[in-house]
Design a protein around this nucleic acid. Structure first.
Length: 403
DNA sequence: CAGACGTGGGG
DNA sequence: TCCCCAAGTCT
C-alpha cells in the first residue's frame, strides 16, 4: 500500500468508525456556529467531562452572540469560574462583540475572519470552520498530533510549535471529500477514547491494520514529547481580615495576567520560605507589604491554615493569617505599624463602613487606584456572587461555613 | 521560540 | 503520592 492509499484508507476507516457511533455531547446536538465556537474555546486544554456542565450553563445564560456581547463581564467570568484560563472568557466576549458589530451577530464563514477573532488560533479556527461550515480545514490539537505520530510513526517532538505546522499539512491531506467536520471530530474522538496517551487500545482501533507505529511496536513510546518545566514555587502570605459585622476584606485582581479580574484575599509574596514560615516575620512582612504597596492596613495575628495551589507554571504555598480590628496587637507587630495607628484604628472601628486607609497614595497600586472599588468588605451572599480562583474560593467557603 | 496562562482527573 | 496531561492561544 503506497502513501496515497494509506492516507485515503485512514480517512475512510476513521470516518466510518465515527459515524457508526460517537459520544452524545451537548454541542453536537446543534449546528449553531456560536455553540460550536463556545464549546471549542471551553475545550482548549480542558477535558470534555469538565466542559459539559459549564457549556450548558453558559449557552443557557448567553444563548446568542448578542446575548454574550451585551452581558456584563462579571457575569461571564462567574460562569467561567473554576474552568481556568480565564483570558479565554474575556477573549470570547471581546470576539462576540466584534462578531455582533462587524458580522451582524453571525459567526463569519470565512477562514481569515474566523482566524482573526480573539482567542481563536489555528486549532479552533479549523474546528469551527470544519464542524460548523463544512470547510476542509485541519483542526490539529494534542489528540490529533498523538494519533498522527503513531499512525505514521513520526518522531517529531509534539511540544515544539513547528511540529504542529507539519501536522496540519498532513491532516489537511487526510480529510475525506465533503466530510471535514466529522473527520476532524473522529480524529479527536479516536485520540480521546482509543488512541490514548498511555496504554492505547489498539485492539479495538479502527485503523490498527495499517498503523505504522503499532506495526513497529512503538505505540507506547510515541508521540515524542519533551517535558515541561516544573512549576516555580512561590510562598505567599494572605490575610483573612474580618470586620466586627462579619464582613471579610477582599480585592479584585488586575485586568491583565494571572487570574485577571477574579477576586481574592489580599496577599503578598514572601521574600523567602523562612520568612513565610516564621510566626513572627511572616505576619510582619504581610502587614508591612500590604501597607507599602497597597495602602491597606491590617494586623495579622492568627495562623488560620495553609493552602496549596498548582498552576502550570507556578506552585503557590499560601499561608492564611487571620486579622480583626479588635484584636490585640501582638509584640511582633509593634514595630511595623508605627506609621498608621490612627488609620488602622479608624478602619477597624466597630460596624463602621469600609473607609480603607489608603495611606500611600503616591505609590503604584498594582491592584488599581485607591477608590476604584477594587477592595470590598463582603458578606456570604456577595462571596457567592463574585468569581474566585479555586484556591481562594475554598478558603473563603471554609470561613463562611464555620462563621 | 519560550514562557505565561488553571484546574481536575487518571494511572 | 506524584506526575502527566486535556479539543491551545497570546506575547
Amino acid at each position: 500500500m503506497d502513501e496515497t492509499e494509506l492516507k485515503r484508507f485512514f480517512g475512510r476507516e476513521l470516518l466510518d468508525w465515527y459515524r457508526r457511533g460517537n459520544r452524545d455531547l451537548p454541542w453536537r446536538r446543534s449546528r449553531d456556529p456560536y455553540y460550536i465556537w463556545v464549546s471549542e474555546i471551553m475545550l482548549q486544554q480542558t477535558r470534555v467531562e469538565t466542559v459539559i456542565p459549564y457549556f450548558n450553563r453558559f449557552v443557557e445564560r448567553f444563548p446568542t452572540v448578542r446575548a454574550l456581547a451585551e452581558a456584563p463581564e462579571e457575569d461571564v467570568l462567574k460562569l467561567w469560574e473554576g474552568l481556568g484560563y480565564y483570558s479565554r472568557a474575556r477573549n470570547l466576549q471581546a470576539a462576540a462583540r466584534e462578531v455582533a458589530e462587524r458580522y451582524d451577530g453571525r459567526v463569519p464563514n470565512d477562514v481569515e475572519a474566523v482566524r482573526g477573532l480573539k482567542g481563536v488560533g489555528p486549532y479552533t479556527a479549523g474546528a469551527i470552520l470544519s464542524i460548523a461550515f463544512g470547510r476542509p480545514e485541519p483542526a490539529v490539537d494534542g489528540n490529533v498530533m498523538r494519533v498522527l505520530s503513531r499512525y505514521f510513526c513520526l518522531d517529531e517532538d509534539i511540544a515544539r510549535p513547528a511540529t504542529r505546522t507539519g501536522m496540519e499539512k498532513l491532516a489537511r491531506e487526510l480529510i475525506p471529500e465533503g466530510a471535514a467536520g466529522d473527520f476532524n471530530q473522529a480524529l479527536m474522538e479516536l485520540g480521546a477514547l482509543v488512541c490514548t496517551p498511555r496504554s492505547p487500545h489498539c485492539l479495538t482501533c479502527p485503523v490498527m491494520a495499517h498503523c505504522e507505529g503499532r506495526i513497529a511496536g512503538r505505540e507506547e513510546e510515541l508521540p515524542v514529547k519533551s517535558k515541561a518545566k516544573p512549576p516555580k514555587p512561590q510562598h505567599r502570605l494572605a490575610v483573612l481580615a474580618v470586620r466586627a459585622d462579619g464582613r471579610v476584606l477582599v480585592r479584585r485582581r488586575p485586568a491583565q495576567g494571572l487570574l485577571a479580574r477574579l477576586w481574592e484575599l489580599p496577599h503578598v509574596e514572601a521574600p523567602s520560605e523562612s520568612v513565610w514560615d516564621s510566626p513572627e516575620a511572616g505576619p510582619s512582612w504581610l502587614a508591612e507589604t500590604l501597607v507599602l504597596e497597597e495602602g491597606v492596613r491590617v494586623r495579622p495575628n492568627r495562623h488560620l491554615g495553609d493552602a496549596e495551589h498548582v498552576f502550570t507554571h507556578l506552585h503557590w504555598y499560601v499561608r492564611v493569617w487571620g486579622a480583626s480590628g479588635a484584636s490585640l496587637e501582638a509584640p511582633a507587630q509593634r514595630d511595623l505599624a508605627a506609621a498608621g495607628e490612627a488609620a488602622a484604628a479608624s478602619a477597624s472601628a466597630e460596624g463602621q463602613e469600609a473607609a480603607l486607609p489608603f495611606a500611600v497614595r503616591e505609590a503604584a497600586f498594582p491592584w488599581g487606584e485607591a477608590g476604584e472599588d477594587n477592595y470590598r468588605w463582603i458578606d456570604r451572599a456577595e462571596f457567592e456572587a463574585l468569581a474566585w480562583p479555586n484556591v481562594f474560593r475554598k478558603i473563603l467557603a471554609a470561613h463562611f461555613e464555620s462563621s
